[in-house]
Simulated scan of single mutants.
Amino acid sequence: MNALLAALAVFLLLNLAAGLLRVWRGPTPADRMSAALLFGSTTVAVLLVLAELAALPALRDAALVFVMLAAILSVAFVGLPRGRGTDEEDVP
């Protein structure tokens, strides 16, 4: 069971690396935000797997903090006002 959990943690970390490529390449702010939300949810999954693997309940608490931060981040992104005359195509 421990080998399966360790393999799952490695797989999730590889997903984070793939998401980093999306943050770097863009092309739109919405793509970058989607990747950042992927980071949040994948980080929570990694922390939960590691909490079970290492029998550290404190990692579950850290996962809850990341869930709250990801929720706040998504609400803040949606609530950000757009500047006058800016479109998604204009933003680099």
Rank of each mutant, 00 (worst) to 15 (best):
L37N: 00
V78C: 01
L53N: 04
I72V: 14
A9C: 08
E88Q: 09
V46D: 00
W24A: 13
A36W: 03
A6C: 05
L12S: 05
V91E: 15
G83E: 15
T28G: 10
M1S: 12
L38H: 05
V49A: 12
G19S: 03
A71Q: 06
V46G: 01
A30S: 07
L64R: 15
A76R: 09
R82I: 03
R22K: 13
V10K: 15
E52P: 02
A30C: 02
I72Q: 07
A6I: 07
P57I: 03
G19C: 01
L16Q: 04
F66D: 01
T86R: 15
V46L: 04
M1F: 08
E88G: 09
S74I: 02
V49T: 14
L5E: 10
L4H: 08
L12C: 10
N2K: 05
T28F: 12
L12Y: 04
V10H: 06
L8N: 12
S34K: 01
L16R: 01
L48N: 11
L53I: 03
L4K: 12
V75D: 02
A55K: 08
F66K: 02
N15V: 10
P57T: 09
D87G: 15
A9D: 06
L20M: 13
A76C: 04
L14W: 10
A18W: 11
L48Q: 08
D87R: 15
R25V: 05
L80N: 10
L21G: 13
L4M: 09
E52N: 08
L37C: 00
V91Y: 10
V65L: 14
R22H: 10
A76V: 13
L48V: 14
L8S: 06
R82H: 11
L73Q: 03
G85F: 12
L59K: 06
R60V: 15
M33S: 02
G19W: 00
